[in-house]
Design a protein around this nucleic acid. Structure first.
Lengths: 148, 148
DNA sequence: AATTAGAACTAGAATGATTCTAAAATGATC
DNA sequence: GATCATTTTAGAATCATTCTAGTTCTAATT
């Protein structure tokens, strides 16, 4: 096994999360840009949002590459895809267990972190013998700013 | 206020739910077909599913009309739109409070009814001052048939 | 340093779900 | 039975995403 090139492989120093990737998953400038732009965003941007931000702030990139990078990062478990309504997918670099609060007026999406363990089987009658792997919770309502 | 035409207005006898509509919301044969076809379905069909079922089983209809009827029924609160993944919207005539169990293998969607009151604020740290109007819960996993 | 094989990037085409448009049909009221 | 609003329709348009196929880039090898 040849040595990993420190310049182009996902370094564990930059962000421990990036280290989970195998050595053949390259940390290209584009992937870095997509990941970092998303990590700096608190607003759950769409692919197009990220495309615009990366294009104006830093390097040139194509929309197809943004989609490729997002798919790569998602399938490697570095980021998560979020679906709140039909339409565009949104992305989220927060890997801590959390759910989403969606403001129906301004559209803002806020992460809500757990205070206690949650088991859906205590609240809903699941099919007998079903095996739960994941529970998606989306809370809709009015954010503090929009209740005024 | 002129009398309601019993033949074309949503009758309260057929299904009490249909009575919630105002008198200017007509119960056309197409709307009736879309509603009834959905009400008889347990599989959370897509607009295209409903289009095919209505077209083959009963009257002729266009896909645009299915979309129009679904939009009409949804905005009048007679049916619900369900988004489990990106892609097509699914529809559900079950208005009892419930959540959805989605089998990741066979794709089947099952309604899961509540056994206890559920307040998301006891589990997740919502933004201070936020007002919750609705909580969408989608439970993903393997259905009883697929665990075998 | 040049070669090579594979991975990543790209523009533009293609796809799939949905919405829009504008005209025709239908229904309700006058 | 005329009139006006609503519904239906086919087909065009749109929007987000994925695909295609050619090009460029990267890293290991010569």
């Amino acid at each position: 096994m040849p040595p990993v090139n420190p310049k182009t492989s996902y370094p564990s120093g930059l962000d421990c999360r990036l280290a989970v990737l195998g050595r053949d998953a390259r940390l290209t400038p584009h992937r870095r840009a997509v990941f970092q732009t998303l990590a700096e965003s608190t607003d759950h941007p769409t692919a197009l949002d990220l495309f615009t931000r990366i294009k104006t702030r830093s390097s040139d990139i194509s929309l197809a590459t943004v989609y490729n990078c997002l798919e790569h990062l998602t399938s490697n478990g570095l980021i998560k895809q979020v679906h709140l309504e039909r339409g565009q997918s949104r992305y989220c670099a927060n890997l801590h267990e959390h759910v989403h609060f969606h403001c129906e007026k301004c559209g803002k999406v806020t992460d809500a972190h757990p205070m206690a363990d949650f088991d859906p089987a205590t609240y809903w009658n699941l099919p007998k013998g079903a095996k739960v792997t994941r529970t998606d919770v989306a809370i809709h309502g009015l954010c503090p700013d929009c209740t005024k």
